[in-house]
Computed example of a mutant assay.
Amino acid sequence: MRVNRPDWAPRDVDMDRASAARLYDFFLGGSFNFEVDRELGRRVATVAPAVFDFARLNRAFLRRAVRFLVSQGVTQFLDIGSGIPTAGNVHEVAQRVRPGCRVVYVDNDPVAVAHSEVLLAGNPHVVAVQADMRDPGALLNDPGTARLLDFSEPIGLLMVAVHHFLPPADEPERLMARYREVLPLGSYLALSHITSDAVAEQVSALVELYRESTHPVTVRSKAEVATLFEGFELVQPGLVFTPQWRPESPEDLDEHPEHAGVYAGVGRKSALG
């Protein structure tokens, strides 16, 4: 079946398989996704209806983490695996508190980057970079990254809902060490990761269906997620389910926080890594 390419879709984008960025956009109620994403998204929602809460609560954690980092004096952010910008994205949250905050969005999905470039046009403090997190050298040396980020000052490294797309063969702990090494003292890491420690049946069903996408999912336990924070000191309340991380309003809370299915935490680099 021939699929019509929307005007906003890059010519080289794969429209035959769902992508993680576009699926996340679908679960958040966005419109920058294809029928292949919506079809798989509907199937995921049938077997794992909590996926909409996974996405919503994870997004709320991102916003709270950004506000916290700005309150700690962080004015520049590297958002790896940023996905497709939707309302309340990092630059909007950060610049609402401090207008001069700088943000580098990074994703390997051309749709995410193309839409980001349109959305961010005219904002000199924000840039979108197409790169693969598994290649820190290319990502960190990209002209956009080099132009906006000052690696002599603290940086907020955001890796929200991205590490579960790295299988063990990609050695995520070693990859994290490479990013940690280049971060100045006083920098922060905000990270979230899906788990099967709770709602295991739904998470397992989600994982199985994501095998059909361009980004299969690897779940990790709390102890395994904690290893990604090596070299960072976790701030209170530590590594918890997303609704438990510094809730600011009743909407942030959940009667059963474990049903969020995603661990989240923020750590500070206070020693040489």
Rank of each mutant, 00 (worst) to 15 (best):
H256V: 07
L209Y: 10
I84A: 13
P257A: 03
L166Y: 01
Q202A: 04
V90K: 13
Q76S: 08
A177P: 02
G273C: 04
V44H: 03
P167A: 14
R67F: 03
D170A: 14
F229R: 03
D53T: 13
F32P: 01
L228S: 02
H256R: 15
G231A: 11
D170T: 08
P10G: 05
G88M: 04
E39L: 11
E117L: 08
V219I: 00
E212C: 03
G144K: 07
V182F: 06
F54V: 06
T214D: 15
Q244T: 14
E181G: 06
S249K: 08
G30F: 11
P168D: 15
G267L: 00
A131H: 05
Y179E: 09
L253D: 01
A21D: 14
W245H: 07
N123H: 13
P49W: 07
A45W: 02
G81W: 12
I84L: 12
R268N: 05
F151H: 02
R43H: 01
G273E: 02
V44I: 15
Q244M: 09
R268Y: 02
L62F: 12
E153H: 13
A114C: 07
L157W: 08
P216G: 10
R5Y: 09
Q76E: 07
P257N: 04
A271R: 11
D16V: 03
E255A: 14
F32Y: 14
H193E: 11
E230C: 11
A161L: 05
R43T: 04
G238A: 12
A138P: 04
P99V: 01
D53C: 07
R63E: 14
N58W: 14
T227F: 01
A223F: 02
Q244A: 11
E258Y: 09
A48W: 07
M159Q: 10
